[in-house]
């Protein structure tokens, strides 16, 4: 028992130090803060200006929150993981006596928090323009966190699969841009051509966006609990797949 407590205490210190180091070194740097603010601000501003009224803003909010999280998280993983691997500082982490699962959770926690912070930007803007008292905040917050987790692990999966930062960014775009159109962020999946609809249901963000639509204006197609459950499954799957890739490519 005492041994386990000591071990977890050591792991906890390592986890916290990695997270704090990443926050200081990457996420809290002025360029990233500005990117994290400006990008969602630009999207939100653009969409809200073009919106047709209060109802429109409500229906746009889930998509804007999702897109802010997606771009914020996936962009950062290319730096915190691919860049460090390229510069060999990641080896230092791999040599530490902590489980790989814990190490990768520490490396991705910063991105998850960054994604959640990104999602706050459109919410805060919307709060000035419309009444958000009817939003189911519990479901909304849970969905935001899970979207951040899944997007981060999607970014991790890409970051581990490549060797260069530019490759990570390029490969991320193959996932990111189609997802803007396919995942029901700004119009229902049912409005997509029939051929594309199965593809939309294969993408994790579809479930995240659906849950957010449900939480904000009741426009969900699936039960929110099911959406959240599927997001969890995607999160676990992508994380495990990334770990397999790390073991296969980096500790081969």
């Amino acid at each position: 028992m005492t041994g386990a407590v000591i071990r977890w205490g050591r792991w906890g210190r390592a986890f916290w130090s990695i997270l704090r180091k990443d926050m200081r070194t990457y996420y809290l740097k002025p360029p990233n803060i500005s990117w994290g603010l400006l990008f969602p601000l630009a999207w939100t501003g653009m969409f809200f200006i073009r919106s047709g009224g209060v109802d429109d803003i409500r229906s746009l909010l889930p998509g804007l929150a999702t897109i802010s999280i997606l771009f914020g998280t996936t962009s950062m993983l290319a730096i915190t993981v691919t860049f460090e691997k390229k510069g060999r500082s990641f080896e230092r982490l791999l040599l530490a006596p902590i489980p790989l699962e814990l190490l990768m959770l520490a490396k991705t926690s910063g991105a998850i928090l960054f994604g959640v912070a990104n999602a706050c930007v459109p919410v805060i803007l919307a709060a000035f323009l419309v009444d958000l008292s009817t939003v189911a905040w519990g479901s909304f917050a849970t969905a935001v966190v899970l979207i951040a987790v899944v997007s981060t692990f999607l970014g991790l999966f890409v970051a581990v699969a490549v060797s260069e930062v530019f490759e990570a960014q390029t490969l991320s775009n193959f996932f990111r841009f189609p997802m803007i159109f396919l995942c029901g962020l700004f119009f229902p999946v049912g409005d997509l051509p029939l051929l594309l609809q199965p593809l939309a249901w294969l993408l994790p963000l579809t479930y995240g966006a659906d849950a957010l639509h449900g939480a904000v204006h009741g426009g969900n197609g699936l039960p929110i609990a099911l959406d959240l459950g599927i997001l969890c499954a995607y999160g676990v799957g992508l994380f495990l797949l990334s770990l397999v890739n790390i073991r296969r490519r980096w500790i081969a």
Binding site: G9, R10, W11, R13, A14, W16, S17, I18, K21, R24, T25, G87, R88, S89, E91, R92, L93, A96, P97, I98
Partner: peptide, 22 residues
């Protein structure tokens, strides 16, 4: 392969934390 953004002292304390030092 230490972290260029951290100071010498911070790099060492970070590495110590990786090994679970209080």
């Amino acid at each position: 392969n230490l972290y260029p953004e951290l100071s010498g002292y911070e790099n060492l304390t970070f590495c110590g934390a990786l090994y679970g030092l209080a």
